[in-house]
Amino acid sequence: MTLPAPSLREPSHRVSQRAPAYWRVHAAVAAVVMWLTAVALLVTVLLVPGGWWSVLLWVGVAVLAVAPVPWLTLAPRIRFDVHRWEVTDIAVHVRSGWLSRTDEIVPLSRVQTVDSAQGPLMRVFGLRTVTVQTASSAGTVAIACLDDAVAQEVVARLVAITAATPEDAT
């Protein structure tokens, strides 16, 4: 008899309620650029006499017009459902992704630096991202889009715990 395979449970906390709105605005900026490009292509294809490549241009227009739509509509909602984080006394666990899923776990005894960052757009929404770095360049974990106050609290807590575990971080 084999035991049922273990699985990772959902980390306990969601990201900020305002995160989906931030993601949407963020995606909208990219979408505007793509749509402007699409319009430019469309004008080109209509004005310049066609050749074998006009098919490719039409495909380009279609792709550029449709591509941003999921990021404006579905993605923020799904990401809000998926993104979770949890800090225990032993480790940080972060889950992220919308089509993909990534679970990252970092033990606090191996944390080297704790950063927090806030871009200009994030400031408008009152969001902040906390980043935890270890001795591995591949092992950086970000808890994205927390409420500003929550983020500050998390940073303070992480710093306190990591300072109390004087283990060699490598």
Binding site: R101, E104, A135
Partner: peptide, 28 residues
Amino acid sequence: VGWRVHQSFWDRRRGLAQLVATTAAGKE
């Protein structure tokens, strides 16, 4: 010094995952 369990969209459909053990040694 940390774990990452990553599943792409196709990985999720097949129940596979990419398990990454991060470390300070070698290629990290």
